[in-house]
């Protein structure tokens, strides 16, 4: 589904990613861990196509297509979803309008007619249950005045609405209390199928108690320095990142 080869990326001339290799297959959950500043969020942004980063080398293929030259909206329409670490507020734009516009852009890309108003509202009702989100939240403007937990729930709600093939969740656990964490994680688990894949970027093991990964990768100084099964996360929890830093 996703194949990253020797990916290098800069921001303002400073190299952040220094040769990433990663393969993600349908049905898999990959966790990417690592200390602050190791390049985790940069990797997420580069995959989603944020243009403040410059890719200097390597390739990324998604669903068999080289995507590095595609604008972010096309990657999104192909089925790539990024759950933001800091979801932005868009004042005055209701969640309903925002999601309707997004869904219809996805449908247009796949040569489908726009969703009728009633089908759309039905879909919203269904998906709201997955993340235990209340109606009042979707009636408000996009993320405006949302608490940290509400913003993260709202990200998972949008993921549920857009039904992506690949979801990249960037520090979705940051700023969540234990109840919100449970809700967000159970949302992600409910959305898992044999056909989609998830990349969970996190700093802590905590989230991985709820979203159990098939693979754990440690990113450090712009490279994946260690890959293993879920037990690696527990080891990191126990020992911290110091031993990684000493080794690499």
């Amino acid at each position: 589904m996703l194949e990253i080869k020797n990916l290098h990326a800069n921001i303002e001339g400073k190299e952040i990613l220094k040769g990433i290799d990663l393969i993600v297959k349908p049905g898999e959950v990959h966790a990417i861990m690592g200390p602050n500043g190791s390049g985790k969020s940069t990797l997420a942004s580069v995959l989603a196509g944020r243009d403040i980063f410059e890719v200097t080398d390597g390739s990324v293929s998604f669903l068999g297509k080289d995507i590095l030259d595609l604008p972010p909206e096309d990657r999104a329409r192909m089925g790539m979803f990024l759950g933001f670490q800091y979801p932005v507020e868009i004042p005055g734009v209701s969640m309903v309008n925002f999601m309707k516009a997004a869904i219809n852009e996805h449908r247009k890309y796949n040569n489908l007619d726009p969703l009728s108003a009633s089908d759309f509202l039905k879909l919203m009702r269904e998906k709201k249950e997955i993340v235990e989100i209340t109606s009042t939240l979707t009636n408000r403007s996009v993320n405006e005045g949302f608490s940290g937990g509400e913003k993260k729930k709202n990200e998972i709600f949008q993921m549920a609405m857009l039904d992506p093939k690949l979801a990249i969740l960037d520090e979705t656990d940051s700023g969540l209390d234990i109840d919100a964490l449970r809700i967000v994680a159970s949302g992600v688990n409910k959305l898992r199928t044999q056909h989609n894949a998830t990349i969970v970027i996190t700093h802590y093991q905590r989230l991985l108690d709820h979203i159990v990964p098939d693979f754990v990768h440690v990113l450090y100084k712009g490279r994946i320095v260690k890959s293993s099964g879920k037990e690696l996360a527990l080891e990191l929890e126990e020992k911290g990142y110091e031993w990684i830093k000493e080794q690499y």
Binding site: A48, P71, P72, E73, F84, A101, E105
Partner: peptide, 17 residues
């Protein structure tokens, strides 16, 4: 970028905002 990532192109994103 947030709008782009949800599938809206930049013109549409600006219109919406």
């Amino acid at each position: 970028f947030y709008c782009n990532q949800r599938g809206l192109d930049t013109e549409n994103a600006i219109g919406l905002i």
